[in-house]
Amino acid sequence: MTHLTARTYHPKFACLALTGLVSAMLVLTPVAAKALDLDSYLDTVRKDNGLPALAAAVIEDGKVVAAAAVGTRVLGKDFPVTIDDRFHIGSNTKSMTATLAGMMVEEGKLRWDSRIGEVLGDDVKGMSASLANATLEQLLSHSSGIPTDDEEMINLYFNTDAFEYNLSDLRLHLLDQWKENEISVPDGSPFQYSNLGYIIAGMMIEKVTGTPWEQLMRERIFAPLEMQTAGFGAQATYGLIDAPVGHRIEPDGSATPMLWGPAADMPPVLAPAGNVHMSIIDYAKWADWNAGKGARGPTLVSAETLHHIQSVKVHTPVRDNPPPGTPSTGDYGLGWGFVTFDWADGPIMTHNGSNSLNLAKIAIDPERDLAIVVTTNFAGGKADMAAGEVMQHLYETYTK
Rank of each mutant, 00 (worst) to 15 (best):
Phe13Tyr: 06
Ala14Pro: 04
Leu21Val: 08
Val22Gly: 05
Val22Trp: 04
Pro30Phe: 06
Asp37Met: 01
Asp39Arg: 13
Tyr41His: 15
Leu42Glu: 01
Asn49Leu: 02
Gly62Val: 14
Val65Gly: 00
Ala67Pro: 02
Gly71Trp: 02
Arg73Glu: 12
Val81Pro: 11
His88Asp: 10
Lys94Pro: 04
Lys94Gln: 14
Leu100Lys: 06
Met104Tyr: 09
Glu106His: 07
Arg115Gly: 02
Val119Glu: 00
Gly126Pro: 10
Asn133His: 12
Thr135Asn: 00
Glu137Tyr: 09
Ser143Lys: 07
Asp150Ile: 11
Glu152Trp: 12
Asn155Met: 07
Asn155Val: 05
Leu156His: 15
Leu170Lys: 06
Arg171Phe: 11
Leu172Arg: 15
Asp176Gln: 13
Glu180Gln: 13
Ser184Tyr: 08
Pro190Glu: 02
Pro190Asp: 01
Phe191Met: 09
Tyr193Arg: 10
Gly202Trp: 05
Gly210Gln: 00
Met217Arg: 09
Ala223Met: 06
Gly239His: 02
Ile241Trp: 01
Gly246Glu: 02
His247Tyr: 01
Pro251Ile: 04
Asp252Gln: 02
Ser254His: 11
Thr256Tyr: 11
Met258Leu: 14
Pro262His: 15
Pro272Met: 14
Ile281Ala: 08
Lys285Asp: 00
Ala291Val: 07
Lys293Asn: 09
Pro298Asn: 03
Leu300Cys: 01
Leu300Trp: 02
Ala303Asp: 10
Thr305Lys: 04
Pro317Asn: 01
Val318Phe: 15
Asn321Lys: 12
Thr326Pro: 00
Tyr332Ile: 11
Tyr332Lys: 11
Gly337Cys: 02
Phe341Asp: 04
Met349Pro: 13
Asn355Tyr: 01
Gly381Tyr: 12
Ala383Trp: 00
Met385Lys: 14
